[in-house]
Design a protein around this nucleic acid. Sequence first.
DNA 1: TAGATTGTTAATCGATTAACAATC
DNA 2: TAGATTGTTAATCGATTAACAATC
Lengths: 222, 222
Amino acid sequence: MKRVKVSNNVIRRLPRYLRKLDELTESGVSRISSFELGNQLGLTPSQIRQDFSCFGEFGQQGYGYNVPVLRAHIASILGIDRGFTAILVGVGNIGRALMDNFCFSDWGFELKAAFDIKPELIGTVFKGVPIYGMDSLESYLSDNHIDVAVLTVPKEAAVSVAEGLTAQGIDAIWNFTNVELTGPNSDTIVENVHFSDSLLSLSYYVAERRDETAAKAGRERQ
Amino acid sequence: MKRVKVSNNVIRRLPRYLRKLDELTESGVSRISSFELGNQLGLTPSQIRQDFSCFGEFGQQGYGYNVPVLRAHIASILGIDRGFTAILVGVGNIGRALMDNFCFSDWGFELKAAFDIKPELIGTVFKGVPIYGMDSLESYLSDNHIDVAVLTVPKEAAVSVAEGLTAQGIDAIWNFTNVELTGPNSDTIVENVHFSDSLLSLSYYVAERRDETAAKAGRERQ
DNA sequence: TAGATTGTTAATCGATTAACAATC
DNA sequence: TAGATTGTTAATCGATTAACAATC
């Protein structure tokens, strides 16, 4: 399975497909064509079929795709059924918000432990997840198999903590710090959630829209 | 300015450039070549020069780029100096976490107000931002010019609240709900922050890595 | 000046779209 | 069966990379 290298663009669309398929299931739709799916996601039917064909044949000529079947395939491709484990490093505001709201188990992840330096947090349990001191991180990682570290430490600590994690054998980091971890070296898998990058992209398009509107108003005034 | 349509790929790299330039400024670097910048960001020098050339000429032959000058250009392209305004809709966990931690003003946005349905929140002020009831949203929007709505309501309310916002003239939504707002119609600018999409992409690459490792181990066993 | 590095044009590479035979 | 829709091959389009003249 999964032999051909699949492009990042395709991978990034998979979670969207999954989400849409879940929505369809909820509304009782059990069958969909690439045409209709494309329509609902703003993609071409061609692209959708092309994307799926990277991983196998999930549809049926003349019928389309069975929603739950397709859903299960995509979930499996994304690794939802693999029982991946995670730890969270840095129980500040964002770390706590994630522990509080984000349902790791919905996406196949078990959040096994959290780590922080604040003495008043160490030894406590938050939402069923034990919080340990940063000094026990290394031994914890050698005793437990952890797939992903959720990095939610303050900006200043980000690089050094990330380096520590990779040194201790973590090979994937879900990075919530606003710091560039993707350097030239290291083959750690890094997935960034940069709020500010996201807002700034939005800002660009808003600025563009404002310029267009202004230009149009200008032309009309003449 | 900004006449040629610039590709989304380029726009998404701009905030990364900005962030890196800020890091460089902090470490006292005031001059950089496209070669070195590419090296630090994992991009080719060609791509970086190509990207910048969409917006003008910011460098100097034989010298490279002046860090603060380039920084200022990119910030301006992204609209940081435009004084955009925002409201936040839905003061739940994620909404509160954003108000608490995310410094809107760092990116040129003024968060003017927040809205929620919970009576105990209405009329209070959180971090200097007044919280109003959802029923006053419409009149607020007609009295105040707001550029962006931050959507942090529960999943179930997402679509209807989003529709209301666009009906009331909001043309950009920063969407934190795990719901697909980018439908076929409507020309609202939507920027999504989908935590689960992000984690699932990461999950895919972890799964791939595990498969590779297993395959390698298999070959070695033979 | 000589070396370095830009901005830009041309070449390559990859991703999306179109088309269609296969078939449910 | 006829109509619908897939999976896949070929065509197009766009994005990245390479190359190089211009010039600081």
